[in-house]
Nucleic acid binder design. Structure first.
Lengths: 241, 241
DNA sequence: GAAAAACAGATTGTCGACAATCTTACAAGA
DNA sequence: TCTTGTAAGATTGTCGACAATCTGTTTTTC
């Protein structure tokens, strides 16, 4: 018998669908940072009860894109320049790790998948679909994390990605311009196919920094204007054990 | 007016208490890997309804120590040698990062806190309280992540920690021996106080590896025996976008 | 008139019951 | 004997209603 690979059956719970809907709304910026999620209103709009909606919200709180205050409400996380900086600096570290781990596992299937995702980015770029462009670019970057064969790394990257995607979307929405039309990933893909691992790692860092500068500048601008609920969270001794 | 630092008020929802209870039960090994959590039974034992219990479980699923299959149940995650390997290898990377970030931020309060946590480990070691020893040792290691002033890093480390603590507890339970009585953290603390950052980073790696070897060997042994629900999750091209 | 107390409205947290789904056991048919 | 269909029981998913809490306003008191 031929061993056909079936993909997992789709999640059939309302909860899962709600999670997907909410996540998309948040990551595309339809739900803005700081915005409160009214349970009754949303549950009525989605035609579900509050139970699965609340469970979905708990998941997204743990996922790090919502925050919850008991008896006060659940809110889309606020985006500060520091958050972006934190996410990016950690991302650089695990990118380097992911490349190192993926490197010896590269095979034809890897290269094919790399090309496929690269093509998807170029496609979205041609179509001037900014949301899709962000998605596909992050998926291209995600390949090294998926291929590294480290489930914990993959989870970590996915958590980071959620935030990055949110930040990017926010950025794009605010600037409302059709995105750099150039192919910014040509070198990245070429190096991943090559034989110089250190060069690939180095480029990953620099390439990310490139996108990053504009984003950080934008975020700093945001904080100048709307300084609602700021608060410098300086690290300090946490509650003692 | 003197600026007194008040600690946050305790969460007063049942959900939060349930999360704490369940997490502790899992991390100490009272709930064993693979075990199914019966909602009705647990809710009756805790004298709460299923609603807050289910919300708590969703949080722990996202936290990575429970896994959920729709209409089948929620289970404590299975511990494989590969999981441990994954967690540790990533931990080494972010440890290095955390030390680098913490380094310029070290001050007297840092050193005091370092000593405090170190003392807690030694205390637990003297009292032969293995569970507490694991907790305190991880808290000692956690200081560099808390002090690094990077919220995303801290979250990531806390997720990793949950698993490591679970693995350690399992290990200790199985071996049932009173733990290495020596002070394994003397050098670590000394180097963190010193002036050679690279040396501290290097030691963190090696030190962790030291604890790790026994744990990994044990986990491999586990897999030899109970090979229930194995399955080699080789990385492959995920579902296309 | 200002501070404190009491009230009203809205929202979140929790509960008990019902619906949908899965598992198991058992019977029917090839 | 093996497969397929069916029914019973148990468990998870979802719903609507009630309780607890917060916020803002009004009333009372000095």
């Amino acid at each position: 018998m031929a061993t056909l690979d079936f993909s997992p059956i789709a999640d059939t719970t309302r909860r899962a669908e709600i999670v997907a809907l909410l996540r998309r709304a948040i990551l595309t910026g339809q739900l803005e940072p700081g915005q409160k999620l009214n349970e009754l209103r949303i549950s009525e709009q989605m035609r579900v009860s509050r139970a699965p909606l609340r469970e979905a919200m708990r998941e997204l709180v743990q996922e790090g894109i919502l925050t919850s205050i008991p008896y006060a409400g659940t809110f889309v996380i606020d985006v500060t320049a520091k958050d972006i900086d934190d996410a990016y600096s950690l991302n650089k570290v695990i990118d380097e790790f992911a490349i190192a781990r993926t490197w010896p596992l590269r095979d034809q299937r890897f290269f094919d998948e790399l090309d496929r995702r690269h093509a998807a980015v170029k496609q979205a770029t041609r179509e001037l679909d900014t949301t899709r462009q962000i998605e596909t670019a992050l998926q291209l970057h995600g390949l090294i994390h998926e291929w590294a064969d480290n489930s914990v790394l993959l989870e970590t990257w996915q958590r980071l990605t959620s935030r990055l995607q949110m930040y990017f979307a926010l950025h794009q929405r605010a600037r409302n311009e059709p995105v750099p039309a150039e192919d910014a990933h040509e070198t990245y893909v070429r190096l991943l196919k090559g034989s110089d691992m250190r060069a690939a790692q180095r480029h990953a860092k620099e390439h990310i920094d490139f996108d990053f500068e504009a984003l950080l500048a934008y975020a700093r601008g945001l904080e100048q204007r709307g300084s609602k609920g700021a608060g410098a969270n300086r690290a300090g001794p946490p509650e003692g054990g």
